[in-house]
Amino acid sequence: MDWIPIVFVTFKVLVLGIGMFFAIKWHYDRGNKETDKQKEKRAVLRAAGQVAAAFLLALLGLGLITYFLVSRIGLNLTMP
């Protein structure tokens, strides 16, 4: 009769300890996944910014090349 509380308390501590371990591990792993999502979002935004910058530079280069080519040929560039 004296061994029942010892076994039950030991079992309770063991089960609660394992449960707490897995709860903490689950929350920690979930936090790491959110960090990965943030890194992925940051990488996508950086790539979009690089594409936009490349497009603007290409547009500027095309405009300058067109301007110098038209002025070299001697076309009239005055506004009506």
Rank of each mutant, 00 (worst) to 15 (best):
Asp2Val: 06
Thr78Gly: 09
Thr10Gly: 05
Gly49Trp: 08
Arg30Asn: 15
Ala58Pro: 02
Ile18Gly: 02
Val13Gly: 00
Arg46Trp: 08
Val70Leu: 03
Tyr67His: 03
Gly63Trp: 12
Phe21Lys: 11
Tyr67Pro: 00
Leu62Met: 11
Ala48Glu: 13
Gly17Met: 00
Ile73Gly: 04
Val70Cys: 00
Asn32Tyr: 07
Lys33Ile: 12
Leu77Arg: 07
Glu34Gln: 07
Phe55Glu: 09
Leu64His: 04
Gly49Gln: 06
Phe68Met: 05
Ile24Arg: 09
Ala43Cys: 03
Ala53Phe: 08
Leu14Ser: 09
Val9His: 03
Val15Met: 11
Val70Asp: 01
Ala52Arg: 12
Met1Asn: 13
Leu62Val: 12
Val7Met: 05
Phe21His: 12
Arg42Asn: 06
Val15Asp: 01
Ala23Gln: 14
Leu56Gly: 02
Leu56Val: 03
Tyr28Ile: 09
Asp2Gly: 11
Ile18Met: 07
Ala43Asn: 01
Lys39Ile: 05
Arg72Ser: 09
Ala43Met: 06
Glu34Thr: 08
Val7Cys: 05
Ala23Glu: 15
Gly61Tyr: 01
Ala58Lys: 03
Gly63Val: 13
Pro80Leu: 02
Thr78His: 10
His27Arg: 15
Phe11Ala: 05
Leu69Gln: 01
Leu45Asp: 06
Lys37Ala: 04
Leu16Tyr: 03
Ile65Arg: 03
Val15Pro: 03
Leu60Trp: 12
Gly61Ile: 00
His27Ser: 15
Val13Trp: 01
Lys37Asp: 04
Trp26Gly: 15
Asp29Tyr: 11
Ile18Phe: 09
Arg46Thr: 11
Leu59Asp: 12
Val9Lys: 08
Leu69Ala: 08
His27Asn: 15
Met1Ala: 14
Glu34Pro: 00
Ile73Gln: 01
Asn32Glu: 13
Ala23Pro: 10
Asn32Lys: 08
Pro80Thr: 02
Phe68Thr: 01
Phe55Met: 08
Val51Phe: 10
Asp2Gln: 13
Asp36Lys: 14
Ala58Gln: 04
Val44Ala: 07
Met20Lys: 11
Asp29Pro: 02
Ala53Glu: 12
His27Pro: 10
Leu57Asp: 12
Phe11Leu: 08
Leu59Ala: 14
Asp36Glu: 15
Val70Trp: 01
Leu62Tyr: 05
Ala48Phe: 10
Gly63Ala: 14
Arg46Leu: 13
Leu56Ser: 06
Tyr67Thr: 00
Met79Thr: 15
Lys37Ile: 09
Lys12Val: 08
